[in-house]
Design a protein around this nucleic acid. Structure first.
Length: 214
DNA sequence: TGCCAGGCCCTCTTTAGGGCCTT
């Protein structure tokens, strides 16, 4: 597996808050290596209670489908094995991180994977976009879609393509040979007003390093 | 038909309030 490998994940859930008892009903994820999707993961799961009409309507996932799905614990065990310690990405990662960590705790596991957020990145790299919802950004960037939204694998794949689009934009804008995950993660942590200055400094240091190596 | 939560981020800010984003 290459050092540029990342996993982009998305949960469909019964609501907004694991703290109020909400749980995942589907997880979808794609494994990116460089600028290619190399693998994927998608499973429905049974949270142990019926979901509300709004979630059924939003996702198209029915209570009948959920009732036939394996329990969250079983799916999350497979998912934890699948992601390993690969760096993770999600759209509004704070949301998916809460559910991931809550479900991992329930199966006696924990997460060390670093995690980056495409909402935070898009606010910095695409500040001129009409808004930073996933569907808007995908349309704004001209990313082709299946037309499916609010299903875990489809949203994870769109988020992955958005991530690749933004890294490619930065790579071309700053004439870099690569955009490491750690750089994107750092950019999402600093103030928006400092992003351009930081990238210019990063480019100068990178060029100095190459000059010394050459 | 989302109003539930939580983190980020802006501003008419920092002794705060409110919009955005996720389901």
């Amino acid at each position: 597996m290459s050092s540029s490998t990342v996993i982009v994940l998305d949960f469909e859930t019964s609501g907004h808050s694991p703290g109020l008892g909400d749980r995942p009903i589907e997880v979808g994820a794609v494994r990116l290596e460089g600028n290619r999707i190399m693998d994927h993961f998608q499973e429905l799961m049974n949270p142990g209670f019926p979901i509300g009409w709004f979630i059924e309507s939003l996702t198209g996932i029915s209570n009948q489908q959920i009732a036939q799905a394996p329990p969250c614990e079983e799916v999350m065990t497979r998912f934890a094995d699948w992601i390993g310690d690969t760096p993770l990405i999600a759209h509004n990662a704070a949301f998916d991180r809460r559910f991931l960590d809550a479900e991992l705790a329930l199966i006696g596991r924990s997460r060390d994977n670093p995690m980056a957020c495409t909402v935070l990145m898009a606010r910095r790299i695409l500040p001129e976009a009409p808004n930073h919802k996933l569907a808007t950004l995908v349309h704004y960037c001209g990313i082709p879609t299946s037309g499916i939204f609010h299903r875990a694998l489809a949203d994870a794949e769109m988020t992955g393509r958005l991530w690749m689009t933004m890294t490619e934009l930065l790579r071309e804008r700053y004439k870099l040979d690569a955009i490491p995950f750690a750089l994107m993660q750092h950019l999402s942590r600093i103030s928006r007003t400092r992003v351009e200055h930081y990238l210019e400094k990063y480019c100068r240091q990178r060029q100095d390093h190459l000059n010394r190596a050459g």
